[in-house]
């Protein structure tokens, strides 16, 4: 069954707004898939709905979620303690593709959008594949640069942009990525991206202009996460599709960006 009562192994802050939550879990997870999590008890109805989260890391007997505090639900989540029980539904949706022929892959992420990619890299390495990997990660400032060292340790070329210019390129990560593409510093066979809507649109456009296949993970408010409520749809060339079932990862050319 894909619905379990899981237990909190640990929950700790790693920066003022980013936290790591370790949960008991066993099974196979494709990179980019997600879980619906209820960080409070079933009979507390405000907030009412479960929250979707990707998987940052998979370890023996558990998963780690990297989360950012953005509202009430994630604030309540910071109060979870070792041993607490939570409803965990998943793994759900369709994750990132990875094709054997890809020699070089660029990842473009913004803020907490970095979350699904550490697991992706773990997974690629475990498969015994060694494409050249570059990460383009952006944020407002230092506070959005979590987990960067782990990517470096995993052999990923890391490029940083901050809007305030406190580290790396000053400005938007999509601009840095575009500049590097123009200079020929990276020549990705495919681009994988997750982050704020504006960034995703920009990355999709950059890839379209150059004919590079691009896959984006979309963030939508979800009612159920399992395909029943039809609340999380996005407009695609083939009509409305559910982010929770047909996504969260879509080929960027499928999305009708003007309506996102």
């Amino acid at each position: 069954m894909k619905r379990t009562l899981s237990k909190v192994i640990y929950n700790r802050g790693i920066s003022p707004s980013y936290h790591l939550l370790g949960l008991r879990w066993e099974g196979r997870i494709d990179p980019g898939q997600f879980f619906m999590l209820r960080p409070w008890s079933f009979d507390r109805f405000d907030p009412l709905l479960n929250r979707p989260f990707g998987v940052y890391r998979v370890f023996e007997g558990g998963i780690e979620i990297l989360y950012k505090v953005v509202g009430r639900g994630t604030r309540i989540m910071t109060g979870l303690k070792e041993g607490d029980e939570v409803i965990l539904i998943g793994p759900l949706g369709r994750g990132f593709p990875f094709m054997e022929g890809w020699e070089e892959v660029s990842i473009v992420s913004g803020g907490v959008g970095i979350a699904p990619f550490y697991h992706l890299i773990q997974w690629i390495r475990e498969k015994g594949s060694f494409p050249a990997l570059s990460l383009y990660h952006g944020g407002r400032g230092e506070e959005d640069l979590v987990g960067i060292e782990e990517f470096e340790r995993a052999g990923v070329t890391v490029n940083i942009a901050t809007e305030r210019g406190t580290r790396g390129y000053r400005g938007l990560i999509s601009d840095l990525f575009k500049r590097d593409l123009e200079k020929g510093k990276v020549r990705p066979s495919a681009v994988l991206s997750c982050g704020p809507k504006g960034m995703l649109k920009e990355v999709a456009l950059i890839c379209r202009e150059r004919g590079i296949p691009c896959y984006v993970s979309l963030d939508r408010m979800m009612g159920c996460g399992i395909g029943t409520c039809l609340g999380c749809v996005v407009r695609t060339k083939g009509g409305y599709q559910r982010v929770c079932m047909e996504g969260p990862v879509f080929e960027s050319e499928e999305i009708v960006w003007e309506e996102l």
Binding site: D46, L48, M221, G223, V233
Partner: peptide, 16 residues
């Protein structure tokens, strides 16, 4: 169906 957004959470409820 309707264009998104199609759902929003309110105290102890959901509007769809």
């Amino acid at each position: 169906g309707n264009p998104p957004p199609r759902m929003t959470e309110v105290p102890s409820g959901l509007i769809n």
